[in-house]
Structures are given as C-alpha cells and as structure tokens.
C-alpha cells in the first residue's frame, strides 16, 4: 500500500509541478499536449491521475507525521480545479461553463470534507479557531475578515451594477428546430420523411447501410475505405454522386467551411462565429440529412425565430444551386467527415 501511495505521491508532485510550469511558461505549454479528438477522455484521465496523485501526497505526508490540514486540502484542490479549467484546456472554456463546473466542484468538495463527522470537524476547525479568536493571530484574522469581506461584497456588487461597454453574452441556438417542411425550387419537402435521392446502392435504391459502409474512416486520418474512392474514374452510383458533391463543395463552400470541412476556410475568420465545424460530433452527426438540406437551401437569412441571434452569413444556396446539387453536397459532407446522418428507425 505504502509503495503504491509513494508512486501516486510522486506522480501528484510531478504533475502539479509540470502544470504550474506550463501555466507560467517555464516549460512550453504544449509539453503534454491535449490532442483534438481525444481531448474529452484525456481531460478526465488527467484529472483522475491528479486525484490519485494528491491522495498519495496526502497519505505520504500523514505517514511522515506532517498531515496536511483538511481545510487546506479542500481549498487548494478547488483552486487547482479552477486553474486547470482556465489554463490547461485549450481552446479556452467560456466563463459560463467554468462557473458551472467550479460550482459543482465546490459542492463536491463540501460533500467530501463533510462526509463524516471526523472529517467535518477537521475541516471546520480553522474556521472555528478564527471565529473563537482565542489567540492573537486568530483575533487579527477575525478583524481582517470583518473588514475585507464587506469590501469584497461591495466590490462585487459595484462591479455587477456598473454600466459596461462589453458586448453582451449571447445564447446562440446552434441547432434551431427546423420547420415541418420546406419549399425549394417550387417543391415542398417534408423534413421528417424526405430522403436524399443520391444515397443509393448499385441497384439505384435508397440504401443508407450501403452508403454508410462506403464513407471514410472516422478518426484522425479520415482514410478512405478500400475500393471506395469517389475520384476513381470508374466510380459509379453513390460514389460518383459523392464526387459530384465534392466538386460543388470545392467550387462554392470550402472558402468558408474549409477544405477539411472543419469550418476553417480561407474566409472563415472574417466571421464571428466562424462557420460550423462539420467534423465535430455535435454538428451534422446529430442531424437528419433533411435538416442540412434545409439549412443549405435557406442559408442564414432563412433561420427561424428560434435561431437567435441569427449570426450566420451563409447565403441561401437555393438561389445558386439546383436541388440535385444541394443533395449531392450534403452527401459529400457526410462522406468526407465519416459521420452517418441521423435516422429515426
């Protein structure tokens, strides 16, 4: 047990030193990189290792007769989490989410330090010492708090009330609910039931499983499946339509949506927000194909009321493309990203 805890303690100490050094810039901030695609699991794994490390540190200090006070354990662990969320994760997490995470962490720490009477007494002790003020230092601290806390509250209140020139926060709806149907080039399409006419098998019948089997491998490389190259001159049917969709995409869409479909095209950074990142699992992977058809056809100007604050400059492509071209572009987007359109069967 002791050996295990020693390893954990070493790990904890090394981890905290490395994180501190990366945060202040003593070592390059990408010494231990968070890799896109693996970041969500990586973040939880890192936090788990840190918790194991801190447990080891606490155990070892207690074993050496220098137990770390529970009060400071709680406070410092919370501070660590806040610093981790603020400086470790890149791109930066917006304040609203950090505030949510910070609050929950605080509650969790309270649950930990008050889970049993003994721990709770240990945690409360320094607070009670200051309140009781039996020593000179505690008395001074109590007076200090008496002065500082009202000033802090006053400062926060002032800061909250003072008029600011900052842009207000926005609650942008990423996926506004689509209409039940949409009319494109004179024909009405019911979004719940319409299908992409080019998602077909070699017999020319609508076949999602066939097309799913021929999309690129999802992952870092996004590799094409063997014998499923749309740019093969002999490609027919579904793959041929993907190629045609690709041609339309690179003639019209990639300037903004990027040649890798990740929303980082040539003109992307002229907009805020930048165009949608189709490689993210939260965009087209969550939606029915008809949803994309509707959005491409109607563009930013066709966003419904729910699409507040309508921050999209996408043109209504029905004015530039035919219905067939739009379906083919949609087909290509799913093929290239390796995602499957949502279905409800």
């Amino acid at each position: 047990m002791k050996a295990l805890m020693s390893v954990a303690a070493l790990m904890g100490a090394a981890g905290i030193l490395l994180l501190a050094a990366m945060t202040v810039g003593i070592v390059p901030s990408n010494t231990v990189r968070l890799i896109e695609g693996y970041m969500p699991v990586q973040v939880i794994a890192e936090l788990t290792l840190f918790v194991a490390g801190f447990t080891g540190l606490s155990y070892m200090m207690a074993a050496m007769g220098m137990p770390f006070p529970r009060f400071w354990q709680g406070i410092l662990f919370w501070a660590f989490l806040l610093i981790y969320l603020k400086f470790r994760i890149y791109p930066p997490i917006p304040f609203s989410v950090r505030a949510m995470y910070g609050t929950i962490s605080l509650v969790a720490i309270f649950m930990w330090v008050s889970a049993n009477e003994e721990d709770w007494k240990k945690f409360k002790q320094p607070i009670m010492n200051v309140l009781d003020a039996k020593t000179g230092g505690a008395k001074a601290l109590r007076i200090g708090y008496l002065v500082i806390i009202p000033i802090l509250i006053g400062g926060f209140s002032y800061n909250a009330m003072v008029p600011k020139s900052e842009e207000p926060i926005e609650l942008r709806t990423v996926h506004p609910a689509p209409p039940a149907s949409t009319k494109v080039h004179g024909k009405t399409y019911t979004l719940q039931t319409s299908q992409n006419p080019y998602r077909v098998n070699p017999e020319g019948k609508y076949d999602q499983e066939y097309s799913n089997a021929n999309i690129v491998e999802q992952g870092m490389g996004r590799l094409m499946k063997p014998n499923a190259n749309p740019w093969d001159k002999d490609a027919q049917g579904y793959l041929k339509y993907v190629r045609e969709g690709g041609e339309i995409f690179y003639q019209n869409c990639h300037f903004c949506h990027g040649d890798n479909l990740n929303g980082r095209g040539l003109h992307a950074f002229a907009f805020n927000p930048i165009p949608a990142n189709f490689t993210d699992p939260g965009t087209i992977a969550q939606l029915q194909e008809t949803f994309i058809f509707w959005r491409v056809s109607k563009g930013g100007i066709g966003l419904p009321n729910e699409g507040f604050p309508w921050a999209s400059v996408m043109p209504p492509w029905e004015q530039h493309l035919t219905v067939d071209e739009i379906w083919k572009v949609v087909l290509f987007e799913y093929w290239h990203t390796g995602y499957y359109p949502r279905t409800w069967d």
Partner: peptide, 23 residues
C-alpha cells in the same frame, strides 16, 4: 450544447464547437 458566451469568448474558442465541451 448551446453555450452562453460573449462574442469575444466565441472568437477565442475559434467557433461554436469546442473540442471538449462539444463532445
């Protein structure tokens, strides 16, 4: 999934989709 943020935060994030929060 729909994050509350200022336009500046949106810009710093490099788009509406965050590689951790998005997942």
């Amino acid at each position: 999934h729909t994050i509350v943020m200022t336009p500046a935060e949106l810009k710093a994030m490099g788009g509406q989709q965050h590689p951790v929060l998005g997942n």
